[in-house]
C-alpha cells in the first residue's frame, strides 16, 4: 500500500530532475520543441501513474462495496 502510494512521488522527482535537461528547443518531436513535448509526455505519464494507483488501491474497492 505504502509502496503503491510512493509511485505518486515519481512526477515530482521527474519534474525536479528532468526540467533542466528538457529545457531545449531541438530536437523537435512530433513537430514540437523538445521542452513542450517533454512536458506533454510528463503529463501523460503522470496520468498513467495515477491510473495505476487508482486501479490497485484497495480503498476504492472498499468504497464500492
Amino acid at each position: 500500500m505504502k509502496s503503491l502510494y510512493m509511485l505518486a512521488l515519481l512526477p515530482f522527482i521527474g519534474l525536479l530532475g528532468g526540467l533542466s535537461f528538457a529545457n531545449r528547443v531541438e530536437p523537435y518531436v512530433l513537430g514540437m520543441p523538445f521542452l513542450i513535448f517533454w512536458i506533454i509526455l510528463w503529463v501523460v505519464l503522470t496520468s498513467l501513474i495515477m491510473g495505476t494507483i487508482y486501479f490497485f488501491d484497495p480503498v476504492n474497492k472498499e468504497e464500492s462495496e
Binding site: Y5, A8, F12, I39, V43, T46, M50
Partner: peptide, 17 residues
C-alpha cells in the same frame, strides 16, 4: 507559459489524498 500545464497536473496528484 508552460507552467499552466504543469501545476494543474500536480494539483490533481495531490487531490487524490
Amino acid at each position: 507559459a508552460l507552467y499552466i500545464l504543469v501545476y494543474g497536473t500536480l494539483a490533481y496528484v495531490l487531490s487524490y489524498w
